[in-house]
């Protein structure tokens, strides 16, 4: 245990995801040895982050204005919506530069254990966006785990009432990997989702 404020700082860092007691201590001491301007900049950002960041009114992505830069961009394909769990997933898909449509961030996945049901996700907003018939395809890109799959199934059932094409991201073998090292579940999925090439 350290004295007073040092221990408090370590405790605060330790509360962050992925940071254990040792890392928390290392970061705290790093900050004690850092130039005070750098520390001031960090504390300024921390102070402002919650007030300056908004969530896009349309898609739920993080934004500094009322809508995010993707929703404001007229060059994006307005007929495609990719549904993801978190704003982090938007960044991951944007990195691919393959998808030029719009996004919809749900804010999580259906998980009763965590107290998250369909009403806690931004599903109503999604239905509103689909109402005018501009969107022709909804791509479900929730995580390929139990909760993500459950959410995708829930959405696909909900969307059958609308005249919109619903697709799910493929799951299977990692590119650049060796077939022999793939686990059985992934390999099994890859077999299920095999495609005709000739």
């Amino acid at each position: 245990m350290y004295e007073g404020i040092v221990q408090e700082l370590i405790d605060e860092f330790g509360r962050l995801p992925g940071i254990g007691p040792k890392s928390a201590q290392r970061i705290a001491f790093h900050i004690l040895q850092t130039e005070s301007v750098d520390v001031a900049r960090l504390s300024e950002i921390l102070g402002q982050i919650r007030t300056r960041v908004h969530f896009c009114e349309i898609c739920g992505n993080v934004a500094e204005q009322e809508t995010c830069s993707i929703c404001r961009d007229p060059r994006r394909n307005q007929t495609l919506i990719c549904v993801v769990e978190e704003a982090k997933d938007v960044v991951a898909i944007e990195r691919t530069r393959e998808f030029r449509g719009l996004y919809h961030v749900l804010g999580g996945a259906i998980s009763p254990i965590d107290g998250i049901g369909p009403d806690d996700l931004r599903i109503r907003q999604l239905m509103q966006r689909l109402a005018d018939g501009t969107v022709v395809e909804v791509i479900l890109a929730t995580d390929p785990n139990l909760e993500g799959e459950a959410t995708a199934t829930y959405l696909s059932r909900l969307l059958t009432t609308l005249k919109v094409k619903v697709t799910r991201l493929a799951s299977g073998l990692p590119v650049g990997g060796d077939l022999e090292y793939a686990d059985e579940i992934t390999l099994g999925r890859a077999f299920e989702g095999r495609t005709v090439i000739g």
Binding site: I110, P112, I113, G115, G117, P118, A150, Y154, R157
Partner: peptide
């Protein structure tokens, strides 16, 4: 575990339409 939690919360709050769908 997910399903049991859902059943328990349905019992506590009274069954809602959305809970039956999930």
């Amino acid at each position: 575990r997910q399903r049991n939690t859902l059943l328990k919360s349905a019992r506590a709050t009274g069954v809602k339409e959305s809970q039956l769908t999930t």
